[in-house]
Nucleic acid binder design. Structure first.
Length: 864
RNA sequence: GCCCCCAUAGCCCAAUUGGCAGAGGCAGACGACUUAAAAUCGUCACAGUGAGGGUUCGAGUCCCUCUGGGGGUACCA
């Protein structure tokens, strides 16, 4: 509020000098709406292109502080490249399919469409108020039939290539949301990332994308991203894919025709195998139990299996759980020495990793050892790991061990210590492998197995195929028709999209099968081949499918004939800079990378990585923890915007620290940001020169500060040091203020130059304030379309610099020298200083380290 | 358990990549303006860089060990 002071003669002047963020926002928002300064598809635009993409939001209610941070930072980058003369594509849309809409709709008895599009409208309004520089002509919503039609197209392309398939398998089942979940949606504690319910296993026939076919490429191509993606994200993806290198070994089974193949990373320990373990819930276990063992074992196995399946994921993952298992009364034959190995079923072996069976080497694997000790099975050491190798690690270098290698095996006998010997060592008890180091033994045993035809090198991945079907309404229908003959018939492309049926008459309440199945008119269709009665697939796709290619749709969002226009893709893609939360470090980014590689293989795009550079912003916390209503520490964005203004909130986001760090809202000061903006804005009122003045005539000291900023800011922005740029802007504002109040005064051309530079710099962070300053400085809107100014190199070199004079590394004096001084001259000048002579005293100078013009260091020793 | 990151002033954070530990801000103290307050302007104080060792003429920065905090992943054979 402006408080009138009737006694002041310059009341109107005071009014004008009052920084009123609300008035400034109200003034410029409609003008920008009209000017559209951020359009990116202008015909004949010759500027080089940049594609700056923010992760699009899910429309759950209004924007929150997290959005405010992400979009402020993404906007700095987009505005920066625009200012650097690039044609910037900075689009926005909504990831608008998904469970929250459906759950909210069920709760309130609404159509999910209504809830979704109302929220989108609210977010759109907030984003515009927030001055995000999006190109509003390219908006997409994944829940629009115009969008999800192309999800279906993508599905069909993958189906044709065999990359989309259906299989029955034990899947993660969320008993609250009543739907299956991808592995990626189950948290480490075994609960659903969405509902928080404890996930259980259920055997269901579901649709999968064959992402494991791409595991090697997804892993190896990460190397291309090093340096441009946060190392943390790359590490997380590597971890998630989890490639293990080893060998497959075939074991013949007594009384069975087919051998059992096991995967192992330690084929060198094959001679130490004393039993075999199969996953109880595997088909293999079923098969082994079906014939051979006694009825008693069969019964006990059935009980065991039932127990295993009842146990929750959480229980099963507790690593300190005692080992359990059942001997199946079957035997495997070790291919290298013909030994009979008893076969057990135990739940520490997973059905869906490797082949669901392992060769157990208790001496060298902790899990096998725990099991062997629990069931009194033999333990045979085949690697002598005594004296953990230090220093030169001789066993890694060759086959010979030092002569003094001690071999008192009893001291480390796993049977006694309970500790498996996993380390380096020399092979023993292993026939042809004896004496070899671990790595050499691995190489040799694989050769032996290969020539015998009983083994081969193999790789395995932690990554599983991507389960994409969901038993819910608010998603993309899967474009498959199931014939009466049980076969799958893809919906012909010209019949896309398969529209979601209206919600009227449907019961959306989760019940374990898709609500779409209840839409009689929709689900019953003629077989596309022969017209016989058939049923639509009633499942919908995981919404991560939607977001796995949306960055391509932005390039031609209104194209009705194809998913994306290859000419536009060539122009813009891949994304130059992607900005979003680290919460998507695995899921979304892995899926988008996968789909990009698929599209590359199908010939639709010419690149294999979708996002050339990635910036992960941190989270916005309050009092040390994530904001939530239940914790009572929620800070409402709209309140912050009302109180401090859009620009102050945006500036605070940029200034709080490095963008990838979390911001604790309790530690930062939007009021301080507002104060700074007001201070910057008020500078304009003190600029009394006209826009035509010649800056060269201005005060040199202030000009130097201005040009130092002009020189430094671009590099800082490009390395995401937004907080430092803001600090530099504050310095520049302080310098300009000083020049006005106690220097050459507001009429000096350097003051205008400095203030204009402040406006240009500020336009990245505080667009309203900057635009208003720009107008008051005498320019036409929009400041977003004025380029950056180059620094004048002649103003960057100081006339003198301060050189530090050290004696034995301690600072003893400082001298002002020319920046062009050479080492000898610097040394000479320093030596002449009385302080230096005093410090050296009667000691002898041994070396002089001169780093002109900054530093000279006299290194001394006592006089001899 | 394994892998990764971080630690600088009361607080948030800088430090030209091995060269004077401090750019900026918050909070604080004092002063100017004011009848007073707010706003504004100005001045000031505060750490030797989590601990220990090493390399170096010189270490916040590089190496090793440890402590504390954060993250990822985990019967994945």
């Amino acid at each position: 509020m402006v408080i009138e002071n009737p006694s002041a003669t310059g009341a109107s002047h005071d009014d004008a000098e009052r920084y009123d963020f609300q008035a400034i926002q109200d003034k410029w928002m409609p003008i920008w709406e009209d000017l559209k300064p951020y359009q990116s598809d202008i015909e004949g635009d010759k500027r080089p292109r940049k594609y700056v993409l923010d992760m699009f939001p899910y429309p759950s209610g209004d924007l929150h502080m997290g959005h405010a941070e992400a979009y402020a930072l993404g906007d700095v980058i987009a505005r920066y490249w625009r200012q650097q003369g690039f044609n910037v594509l900075h689009p926005i849309g909504w990831d608008s399919f998904g469970l929250p809409a459906e759950n909210a709709a069920i709760k309130r008895g609404l159509d999910p469409r209504e809830w979704t599009y109302d929220n989108i409208e609210q977010q759109r309004t907030s984003m515009k108020r927030y001055a995000t520089s999006f190109d509003w002509d390219r908006v997409l919503h994944t829940s629009d039939p115009e969008y999800y039609k192309w999800n279906q197209w993508l599905f069909l392309k993958m189906y044709e290539k065999g990359l989309a398939y259906r299989k029955a398998s034990w899947v993660n089942w969320d008993p609250v949301d009543q739907t299956v979940l991808a592995n990626e949606q189950v948290l480490p504690d075994g609960t659903s990332e969405r509902s928080g319910a404890v996930v259980v296993k259920k055997k269901l026939t579901q649709w999968y994308f064959r992402i494991t076919d791409y595991a090697d490429r997804l892993l190896d191509d990460l190397r291309q991203l090093e340096g441009s993606w946060p190392a943390k994200v790359i590490a997380m993806q590597r971890n998630w894919i989890g490639r293990s290198i080893g060998a497959d070994v075939d074991f013949t089974i007594e009384g069975r025709d087919e051998p059992v193949t096991v995967f192992t990373t330690r084929p060198d320990t094959l001679y130490g195998a004393t039993f075999m373990v199969v996953a109880p819930d595997s088909d293999l276990a079923q098969d082994l139990v079906a014939s051979g063992p006694s009825d008693d074992v069969r019964r006990r196995f059935a009980t065991y299996l039932a127990d295993v399946q009842k146990s929750s994921e959480t229980e099963r993952q507790a690593t300190d759980r005692p080992k359990t298992g059942i001997f199946l009364e079957r035997y495997a034959i070790n291919p290298v020495n013909g030994e009979r190995l008893p076969i057990w079923a135990a739940d520490y072996v997973l059905a869906d990793y490797g082949h669901g069976a392992v060769m157990a080497v208790p001496a060298h694997d902790q899990r096998d050892l725990d099991f062997a000790r629990a069931f009194d099975l033999p333990i045979r050491i085949v690697v002598d790991t005594l004296q953990p190798v230090t220093g030169a690690i001789p066993v890694l270098q060759g086959d010979e061990l030092p002569d003094d290698w001690p071999s008192d095996i009893n001291e480390i006998n796993p049977a006694k210590t309970g500790l498996a010997l996993a380390g380096e060592g020399r092979l023993i008890n292993s026939g042809p492998l004896d004496g070899l180091s671990k790595s050499n033994a691995i190489r040799k045993i694989i050769e032996i197995l290969e020539s015998a035809g009983t083994g081969r090198p193999a790789k395995n991945y932690r990554l599983r195929d991507w389960l994409i079907s969901r038993q819910r309404y608010w998603g993309t229908p899967i474009p498959i028709i199931h014939g009466a003959d049980g076969a799958e018939y893809p919906v012909p492309e010209d019949q896309l999209p398969v529209l979601l049926p209206p919600t009227e008459g449907l019961n959306l309440t989760p019940k374990g099968t898709s609500p779409l199945g209840g839409a009689e008119d929709w689900v019953n269709v003629p077989n596309p081949v022969d017209g016989s009665p058939a049923l639509r697939d009633a499942d919908t796709m995981d919404t991560f499918v939607d977001s796995s290619w949306y960055f391509l749709r932005f390039l031609s969002p209104n194209d009705e004939t194809k998913a994306f226009d290859p000419r536009e893709v060539d122009k813009w893609a891949p994304v130059d800079q992607y900005v979003g939360g680290v919460t998507h470090a695995i899921l979304h980014l892995l899926y988008a990378r996968f789909i990009t590689k698929v599209l590359f293989d199908l010939g639709y795009v010419s690149f294999t990585e979708p996002f050339s550079a990635l910036l992960n912003q941190g989270m916005v916390l309050m009092d040390g923890s994530a904001m939530s209503k239940s914790k009572g520490n929620l800070v409402r964005l709209s309140d912050q915007l009302d109180e401090h203004g859009v620009d102050a909130v945006r500036l605070t986001m940029a200034f709080a620290g490095p963008p990838e760090d979390d911001i604790d809202w309790a530690d930062v000061s939007p009021a301080g940001s507002a104060k700074f903006l007001a201070r910057a804005w008020r500078l304009v009122g003190d600029v009394t020169s006209s826009p035509e003045v010649n800056w060269r005539d201005g005060d040199r000291a202030l000009r130097r500060v201005t040009h130092k900023f002009l020189a430094e800011a671009p590099g800082l922005i490009e390395s995401f040091k937004f907080n430092v740029v803001v600090a530099r802007l504050m310095e520049l504002v302080n310098a300009a203020r000083k020049a006005i109040d106690s220097g050459p005064g507001g009429g000096d051309p350097a003051v205008r130059e400095a203030v204009e530079t402040v406006a240009l710099g500020l336009s990245l962070f505080a667009p309203y304030t900057a635009e208003d300053m720009w107008a008051r400085l005498g320019y036409e809107p929009s400041i977003a379309n004025y380029g950056w100014r180059g620094a004048d190199a002649s103003l960057l070199t100081e006339e003198t610099v301060t050189a530090v004079v050290q004696v034995d590394g301690k600072v003893r004096d400082r001298i002002e020298v020319s920046p062009k001084i050479d080492g000898a001259a610097l040394e000479e000048a320093a030596r002449a200083l009385p302080s230096v002579a005093r410090s050296i005293g009667d000691r002898e100078v041994v070396t002089v380290v001169a780093r002109a013009p900054r530093l000279v260091n006299f290194v001394t020793k006592p006089a001899s």
